[in-house]
């Protein structure tokens, strides 16, 4: 006599809960709420992004408006120090530009460069990683050897080399005009390897899973299998890398600008501002370098905190 229980292979007819309820109820969202540091970091990141995005509206001055800048206001210290000027909360730089506004605008440029290069690196790296992992054999060997050679040079070195080459090709006057694009090319060329290696690794795991074999048995062509089946399943680690990479891209851009091969002083990013301020460090005008530096550190720290949490939350082994 078979024993009958209430459980049923047939799926309940009840309506599936809405997407938002599902997200709010997910383990991931709860792990997010449980980590107070992460919540603070998320709010901080959002706040800084908004400041950068809305810089033209929230900044007290426009540092690019030559008419409003006066060299008379140069090197004014922050408001809590002697000889300060209440118009300039954090003081001014060597040309009399308001430092706080400069930081907002600089953050905007840093973030644009960061996002663009992360996007370009991700597209390049994911494509190559998918192809290498799925095809295997010679294609894989070639792509991975290139990646190996690339890994021989740290990002900063590649970016410096590309910049040097660009200067050789364009001449140094055009370099200023193309600085933005050169930066993005050099940053994305130095970061794609990480995506490619990670995606290749996960692709090699995924392609041996039976759902991919099932798709092949159905007869679906490789390109569609890669795009529709494998890609969505390898995106988890990519998100983690992209977040951490955004932080790294911002830092690298700042470093290049600091070294004088990134954004020019006419379009200053945070790194350019620090480079300008560095010259005045010894003469006691520390704020010109330190405040943009702190802003940079704060931005990167917040993004890194988010990336760190995302990595732990997406790692099933650490649950």
């Amino acid at each position: 006599m078979p024993y009958v229980s209430n459980e049923d292979a047939k799926v309940d007819e009840q309506t599936a809960p809405g997407r938002l309820t599902k997200i709010l109820d997910s383990d991931m969202f709860h792990s997010f709420l449980r980590s107070k540091v992460t919540v603070v970091a998320a709010c901080g990141t959002l706040f800084l992004f908004l400041l950068a995005l809305l810089a033209p509206w929230v900044a007290p001055h426009n540092p690019f408006d030559l008419a409003s800048i006066s060299i008379m206001d140069a090197r004014v210290p922050p408001v809590w120090m002697e000889y300060s000027d209440p118009r300039f909360l954090l003081g001014t730089d060597d040309q009399g530009r308001d430092l706080l506004s400069g930081i907002f605008y600089g953050m905007r440029i840093s973030l644009i460069v960061g996002f663009c290069s992360v996007a370009a690196a991700a597209v390049l790296g994911i494509t190559l990683g998918l192809v290498a992992g799925y095809m295997g054999g010679r294609v894989d060997a070639v792509i991975m050897r290139i990646a190996d050679v690339q890994l021989t040079f740290p990002a900063i070195l590649i970016a410096l080399l590309i910049d040097g080459i660009a200067a050789g090709v364009f001449g140094s006057i055009d370099r200023e005009i193309f600085a933005f694009y050169i930066l993005i090319v050099s940053l994305s060329l130095s970061f794609w390897v990480q995506y490619a290696r990670t995606v290749r690794g996960s692709t090699m795991v995924e392609k041996n899973k039976e759902y991919v074999q099932a798709a092949r048995v159905i007869g679906i062509p490789s390109a569609i299998i890669m795009a529709r089946h494998i890609l969505p399943n390898v995106m988890g680690p990519v998100m983690v890398i992209a977040t951490i990479n955004l932080a790294l891209a911002i830092v690298t851009e700042a470093t290049l600008s600091f070294l004088g091969v990134g954004m020019p002083p006419t379009q200053p990013s945070l790194g350019t501002l620090i480079a300008i301020g560095n010259d005045f460090l010894y003469s006691g005008e520390w704020w010109i370098a330190i405040f943009p530096g702190l802003a940079l550190a704060l931005l990167v720290l917040n993004v890194n905190l988010l990336g760190d949490w995302l990595r732990d939350a997406l790692n099933p082994k650490l649950r």
Partner: peptide, 15 residues
Amino acid sequence: QMIFQDPYSSLNARM
């Protein structure tokens, strides 16, 4: 057509 061994990996989790 083919039916596979591992029910946990034979279906695409994202579809």
